[in-house]
Design a protein around this nucleic acid. Sequence first.
DNA 1: GTAGGGTTAG
Length: 608
Amino acid sequence: MLLSSVTPCLPSHTLFSLNNNNNNYLNHHNRLLDYLTQCTSFSHLKQIHAQTLRTTHHSHTLFPFSRILLSSTSYDLHYAFRLFHQIHKPNSFIWNTLIRACAHSNAFKQQAILTYLDMLNDGSVVPDKHTFPFVLKACAYLFALSQGKQIHAQLFKLGFHSDVYVNNSLIHFYGTCGCLDSAQDVYDKMPERSVVSWNVMIDALVQLGEFENALKLFVEMQSSFEPDGYSLQSVVNACAGLGALSLGMWVHAYVLRKCDSDLSDDVLMNSSLVDMYCKCGSLDIAKQVFERMQKRDVTSWNSMILGLAMHGQAEAALEYFTQMVDEDLMPNSVTFVGVFSACNHRGMVAEGRKYFDAMIRDYKIEPVLEHYGCLVDLLARAGFIDEALDLVSNMPIKPDVVIWRSLLDACCKKNAGVQLSEEVAKQLIESEGSVCSGVYVLLSRVYGSASKWNEVGLVRKLMTDKGVTKEPGCSSIEIDGVACEFFAGDTSHPQTKEIYQFLDEIEEKIESTGCYIPDFSQATLVDELDRGKKNSLRLHSERLAIAFGLLNTKPGVPIRVFKNLRICNDCHNVTKLISSIYDVEIIVRDRARFHHFKDGSCSCMDYW
DNA sequence: GTAGGGTTAG
């Protein structure tokens, strides 16, 4: 078939009647480039390929086929590989092109590394400075740490360890694989850095939860480079992790001020901002940013749905889900994590089951560990512990620590009995890579609530013998843009005296309401049992942070507290009362979700 | 023709 009969936009004369005249040859090259630029479909490309085969002289094959190979990688990598194998002595550009295409494709990532190895074994070309960024990208996304390390050694031997692009890729690779030290080492030893070097290092810190160090590096960066969209987005993510609302708002303002860029319309940036505002407790601003977005993709919706779920607004989260589907956006795996999380925080068991079935049946999404995790937690915490256990034993994925801990937590909360709790605890200990205090704390609570004090003692001894210490409770609060951290029983703050005096005042007022009965059921510190119980509860870190907040905040301004652990029953009761006595809104982000305390009640409706 | 980006259970 003549090309012109299916692609009228192209001239009807023969495309590539190449001969040995050099000028002609160049003209044909340019014409081929033109056609490839206009090529809009795979079938069109195949026609150009067929035509090239018919008209190309053997001595000039490399150029046209490498260009066609380059174009074909965006359609069909199998086809690209077939073309590749027909090319005699491909040069490094062609190898790199193929490796890059594999690294960018979901299904061929492993092939990127294999192709790189083929390139080494082939022996007729040497990897160049372009090869490494591509193959390291594939290693990063495959978490192929040992292969990446070998590649690092090879590039070192070949003398590419001073190349800024190669080093940036190495930092990204090590960061993605969780090797912060190696990433830092590469970064430190770089002879020169670009803005990307700073960005990838900052992002590695953010990815690994080193938010404060990420922010420090961001500040440092500004003496050498002006931050770009990538830097700002990493900072927004760090703010989300830290709950640093003021800084997050500052970055948002900076983004809006940067008129020379399209950053304020950028889907990725706006989705991060939505996520940041949700995680910093400002759901209203998150919604505003979301509503004003010119373009939204699945991730934007996911950020909003997850944010609403985190704040306990299950109905709204499910409405957003419906709206998203109505707008013909296909939900993905993460969307359903948000949906289940929403159901979970409201105890909506029937809906959770319904959406789980719909996800598999209607949306053809295979459940992953996170989905099972949500569902197990939803069922167990709502009291369907047997059903949750059934699900765990029948699911096709090996349950992890989080799932067993959810179950043990539910056993504990629902008084599921010592025997069952012990069984779950055993599974938890077996699945745990490192020794963690959570299981012992929960077990001691199980024994405590069954008045098995000998066992409580045994658990405590076990903790001492194994050197297990409980993660200390820590709450932070931001006043005038400055974050203050409080540990349980902290006396290090300059305002300590005032804080403790104020705690006495709060306690008197709370007791005078007659509504307060101390709740020791979750006295999480085993050593709290040794101390005056009431005293230890009131020294929980969130109480100190709230007292500090009340002392230093103008009336009417909400108090925002971030806690590393889950809020205990007693602190929850007390905070409700404080919100009513002092007529203040208190927003607490604990390890799992937000609690908005106002007028004596909490947005979680006491289900958490 | 080169590098880097967002959302994932409790």
